[in-house]
Design a protein around this nucleic acid. Sequence first.
DNA 1: GTAATAGTGTCTCTAAGACAATATGAA
DNA 2: TTCATATTGTCTTAGAGACACTATTAC
Lengths: 248, 248
Amino acid sequence: MTESELYDPARFPAFAVTVDLVVLTVRDSRLSALLIRRGEEPYAGRTALPGGFVRPAESLGQAARRELAEETGLADLPVHLEQLATYGTVDRDPRMRVVSVAYLALAPDLPAPTAGGDAADAHWVAVADVLPELFPAAQNRAEGHPPFAFDHARILADGVERARAKLEYTPLAAAFCPPEFTVGELRRVYEAVWGVTLDPRNFHRKVTGTPGYVRPAGGTTTRQGGRPAQLFTRGDVTLLNPPMLRPA
Amino acid sequence: MTESELYDPARFPAFAVTVDLVVLTVRDSRLSALLIRRGEEPYAGRTALPGGFVRPAESLGQAARRELAEETGLADLPVHLEQLATYGTVDRDPRMRVVSVAYLALAPDLPAPTAGGDAADAHWVAVADVLPELFPAAQNRAEGHPPFAFDHARILADGVERARAKLEYTPLAAAFCPPEFTVGELRRVYEAVWGVTLDPRNFHRKVTGTPGYVRPAGGTTTRQGGRPAQLFTRGDVTLLNPPMLRPA
DNA sequence: GTAATAGTGTCTCTAAGACAATATGAA
DNA sequence: TTCATATTGTCTTAGAGACACTATTAC
């Protein structure tokens, strides 16, 4: 029996629990995150991830979904949402002991967050502009973004790395695309998230040759210019075999 | 500004935060977990993961290390420790609202936990005996283990799956081995964790051909019987390239 | 000798990557 | 026409998996 287990259940050490959201999308061929500008102390004016306290009657996942709906102003979004990691160093919030459970959300290019409510200060920011070290190949026009509050730079970096890894082994790249998409659009997702360029010919052969990844939708589109491209929908596999490998 | 953010910092919703440990090792060529038998309500008599409350002055990782040292009776163990996931459904503990951060620890075959203190009720159990569905290939002699408390069966299953995945892309299999080990011993780790049998010849070629995975230690041993085997130590890479692939 | 494990070699096949060539729309 | 993107094809090479064979100990 540990010392800590001798606590009376009514006198356990009390923590605040929050959820923070790493919401990623691809806009204009750039990996972008939904970020807010903090309006109050601590870290007033700093860049931060959307999030908030978990309520007593909701699970962690429910809290993440609720915050996501509040921040984007839309409900029932077709977004992928998964738990990322939990951050609980002693001094991460100067006000009190806070443990934050981070969630990763992947979304197709959404309309700009609606004004009003929480979303007033939320906006899409290219990750390369706030965390240039994650995109060593790009020329980083560092724009005037305030530094991050709390440990949110680290959380965002962890979310990007998780997304990069998941694109290899799962069909999650399609979560960044509308319901019907072309092979070229899917390739631009990989290029934006990984920060690389891929050979369009090998990529095409690979995607269409991986069983269950994409299914022909029947039509074509010219929304990307050039020769009309076939439209596809997501297939039914949850694990890619063979995987899509990141260039070394 | 959400309703929840209007809380006065001194009146935030209070949660209890615990850490639970999935401690895995390989004993007698079987993947085994360190489990305890609960002595008190709720779930008295049930099987559970070791763990306990996070203290106000320690980080999550520090709490995990402390609990690990308390449960195994040894400090400064050469174990790999990483955060697994966080579990926070509303009713997972009937006493109060508890959020549990699970950690995964991988250890070489340790001495049996020392009697006295916390470790009194801790013992190694083959995972195939308590979660036979994770080892469909084995004939499962279901021994008389009490069912799991809380959601600990799920946490253990998640930990095993994490370990299985990490063996593919990282050199973590060596974390189950003593400082010097043979290729055959490393292969038996893969076989025990994945629940498969591997071709010793292809495995040998693969491990010794992956740059930085293992480094010759100079000596040989016959502790496994048969022809003397070369001893190796862990190499310096953190990511295997090419990866060790699980058989389909 | 036999049994057991270690280690090497060889073959086949899948798939990754480089890159030529063709197809089909828009301006 | 030119330009941009899509799609097919071909070649080379790395590596996974099957499996024959040899090596070195204990008994």
